[in-house]
Nucleic acid binder design. Sequence first.
RNA 1: GGCGGCGUAGCCAAGUGGUAAGGCAGUGGACUGCAAAUCCACCAUGCAUCGGUUCAAAUCCGAUCGCCGCCUCCA
Length: 477
Amino acid sequence: MKLYNSLTRQKEEFEPLSPPFVGVYVCGPTVYSHSHLGHGKSYVSFDVLIRYLRHLEYNVRYIQNITDVGHLTDNADAGEDKIEKQARLEKMEPMQISEKYTKSYFDDMDALGILRPDVSPRASGHIPEQIELIKVLIEKGHAYEVNGYVYFSVSSFPGYGKLSGRKLDELVAGARVSIDQGKRDPKDFALWKKAGDDHILKWNSPWGWGYPGWHLECSAMSMRYIGETLDIHGGGLENIFPHHESEIAQSEGATGKQFARFWLHNNMVTVDGQKMGKSLGNFTLLRDIFEKYHPMVVRLYILRSHYRSPLDFSDMGLDSAKSGLGRLLAFRLRLGHKPSEDTVVPSAVITALIESARAAFHESMNDDLNTPAALASIFELVRAGNSALDNNDTPQDRVALAAVLDELAGEILGLDLTGSDSSSADIGELCEVLVETRGVLRKNKLFKAADHMREKLETIGYTARDLPGGKSEIIKK
RNA sequence: GGCGGCGUAGCCAAGUGGUAAGGCAGUGGACUGCAAAUCCACCAUGCAUCGGUUCAAAUCCGAUCGCCGCCUCCA
């Protein structure tokens, strides 16, 4: 499999450091508000990476942190802790805020079919690891303490800038406004910050009471759970600088070893061409989208564009994805719900069709997780599969098609096509009466009455459709 | 200003040298009492514009125009 590595700016064949083990770390959310579509795009993308790596039979350890301390508003050095600020606004304890929004985050991610990380470490639960890391950096001359603050000395690490393509001397001096005195160089960033009396989230340290800088937690926790060298580090494009650049400096400064071999960055969700984000206030919460669109619609919408491309948010796009998902669901429903455990022998036509779909799918996924192209192979399978079944419908063929669809769309892309069975069987005996009544009406050519029934059903969100052989079914629209 | 990316049909979106995937919408047909679903057919002589390289360019090179991201928190 080839993956685009931001560090080398090219696609490279992925090979883990110690096969079959793969250590993946992805920057998680700062839990001070509900998740928006941008979070959805990011974590769906990395979920597909994890699912595909596991499909390729790698033994993956997937770590995704929860930032519950140290992430400041406005500026990396000055500003208020985001969690504390939200706690004040909601009149709650900071830890209540992070619990509340951590739960909300997982609720949304679960709905999107995103597999839980193997470990979701909290920054606040790893203060000792972060303090230890700072100690090492001070020992090695990469960091220095000034009056209760500890700064990373950027000039001590010549590799600073290698990920973002920035040159040290091109970083505008003073661009990062500092209100803290004693910094030797404006480019230096804080590893540990002194906490004032009004600061709630604070810990004791060799440098007094304080709290860790934002960049530090990712270095400390990724190395704690994976080791000194990660196979893959993922995150959003906007975090390349300064966050990921600083992670590299902290980690490699401490260990002298390469921190992450592959850096993967997903692109942004935009609205009318502009980045969806807090500062512009143009974000749309996932929980609000879910009121109108099923989470699987959102997942398909996200997967229809490449993870490194921006995704422009629009209702039209979601409607389009909804129709597309409907097509997949209808096909899956047609195949039946219990793929046999026994080996089935499908017809030659279906076998060939499955083979070519599988080959096209894997070729696309192997090319830097090209999900739009992979989806194309699935839609081609749906078209050809429907066509074949229209000609000659056999249980063996249906089972074989169901198995491949569940594997490619379900297991790998995470599109659950079996969950929402909207057939009449689920609606109960009342529905059976309606279905039977419709049959009687149609049999006696009482079409006006039959149409009236369908119109009435439409008003409560259902519709009647007639199947071959005179039978009908009532389904949710 | 520095660094990076993008511009493909009505909308979305793959495609990085060999003659434009796929989805949505639309049109015609089959099927249907009518629909729905499904299938078949059609739907970009052209990929921002102009020039260049090549037997061959959406793909490579140059210029121009337009848009976006990062450089301060953001997935």
